[in-house]
Design a protein around this nucleic acid. Structure first.
Lengths: 295, 295
DNA sequence: ACGAGGTTGTAACTTTGCTACAAAGTGAGC
DNA sequence: GCTCACTTTGTAGCAAAGTTACAACCTCGT
């Protein structure tokens, strides 16, 4: 019952509400921000129904009284109005557009945060941490995520590479071994060439990890499927949000891998950061920094 | 006074609180999630102070009574505990680690959403929409953002390219003209080579847009500075969050550019999405789709 | 040690949200 | 087309929560 944010639940349960309660729902959806600051009496007044009706409404959508409703609504509003309930329009001014784009991004991340399969994540980290070689593949926006991963994992001592070219992806998969982990990134999970490549890797005994937007052919053929639901709606104004969530999932895997590697890898990363800061400023190489004690 | 979320404000004002109020602050920070569900009396009980003290505390941190405090705290908690107040630790289990990484990402985006300079953004969009050529440059994580932009802007009819190699960046800047827009992406805003390149473009009359993490040499020399504060803390476990916010800012610019271009560009994007979906599935090219009426 | 300033708690008060019950509306069956 | 059972909505009183005025208490300087 209580899955998703209040706003999502109101939308979903809209049909099963009584007529007066429906009026309440409409009023809340019309101005969620305003509703947060209202008292029970005020809301009843503006909607034009009695106070108990409001309370019954809050119960109907899975809240424990008006108090609980108000808090949950406040939390929902804090994240923003999700893309499923809002559209960017041509007449929106700058502030509105910025709000909407950020709202979409934040609510999307919140959604993934709630729905990520922790068990699958654990297994993916285990596989990557144990791998002799990690290959990230993706096309388009997912290719960006693959390249981002390629920047991150070598820091942790995991030898890895990313390929955003279908031929090179195929070649890499063809040379994989049972100790290889192939991370295939695709929001649709249906891109033909990527599926072929993943099959090749699987048949060569590699572990295939999929980062994908839902149940899909890619998810099915992979050993470990990380489903990152993007809630991308079809509106063309809506920027491609899926890649953000994918990036954060990759961040999470990287962080967890680092945690497993323990203090030694941690020290390496610290040294790297120090040296990188010097390099950026154009300073000559000054030798590997002395290890400070750990925090 | 009321800048930032409640949790941030509590942390900042910690010193200026009375002793009993300080006890309240500590209790709230120790368990923000639990505090949200508490009543005034309960909180007073658990902290070991009187109810009016709680109320005075809420006023001290800029809330209008306990009610307002609870709502603001709920909103703060909904976004998550920011990286400035939390550290990923080796003993964290999977669920905790995931929460923390997502919390850091979401609170960071929320921070940018609140602090983005809308005026600068407007000017950046105006410049890009009017440009004959747009060049995105960045190194490391910011290079990823540049490449992401390169994927997005051509869809809007803006001719653009991204360079993640210092030499190619320099060459591109050297061939820029007054109708060129150079978007330089750098979290530190201090990387020597990037600064040199930006200066070249500026001296050739190009418009330089900086996407950077704070006031920095890069921000100073650019025509339009988009400051995207990242709140990256120095902890090595903390993944590089800056790039996420940069990506969303690029998304925002792209969306606003599309809005300015109007219906014609919009139709192009729709056609592209249709054709791309076919191509992904391995279907042969079936001709440009007929334009449907607009939503 | 005494008193002024600031700090904290007590108690009465106001507002707010909840619930039992009554009234009104709705629809099926005769 | 009327009646009866059931659902839906509102009224009114009540319990609980938050607020405020004031008194007691510390604390620090003289």
């Amino acid at each position: 019952m209580n899955v998703g944010t209040v706003l999502e639940r109101i939308n979903k349960g809209l049909e099963s509400l009584r007529r007066s309660e429906r009026k309440v729902a409409d009023a809340v959806l019309a101005d969620p921000h305003g509703t947060v600051r209202m008292t029970l009496a005020e809301l009843a007044e503006t909607v034009g129904v009695s106070q108990p009706t409001i309370v019954r409404f809050t119960n109907a959508i899975g809240c424990d009284g008006f108090h609980d409703f108000r808090i949950q609504l406040a939390q929902s509003v804090a994240l923003g109005i999700p893309a499923t309930q809002s559209v960017i329009e041509a007449q929106d001014d700058t502030a509105t557009t910025v709000s909407k784009v950020f709202d979409f991004s934040i609510t999307s991340l919140d959604h993934v945060r709630r729905h990520l399969d922790l068990n699958a994540l654990d297994r993916a980290v285990g596989a990557i941490a144990a791998a002799s070689r990690v290959i990230f593949i993706g096309l388009g926006a997912s290719g960006i995520v693959a390249m981002d991963a390629e920047q991150k994992f070598p820091l942790l001592g995991v030898p890895c590479s990313a390929y955003v070219d279908t031929h090179q992806q195929f070649i890499a998969a063809s040379t994989s071994t049972p100790s290889t982990v192939l991370v295939a990134i695709s929001n649709t999970g249906r891109t033909t060439s990527l599926l072929e490549t993943a099959r090749v890797a699987r048949d060569r005994g590699a572990t295939v990890v999929a980062i994908t937007g839902g149940l899909s052919p890619l998810a099915e053929l992979s050993d470990i499927a990380l489903v990152v639901e993007s809630l991308d709606n079809t509106d063309v104004y809506t920027p491609t949000i899926s890649r953000l969530a994918q990036l954060v999932v990759v961040d999470t895997i990287a962080t967890m891998t680092l945690l497993r590697r323990g203090e030694s890898a941690l020290g390496d990363v610290r040294d790297m950061k120090t040296m990188l800061a010097q390099m950026r400023s154009g300073l000559p190489y000054q030798g590997v920094p002395k290890r400070r004690e750990l925090a």
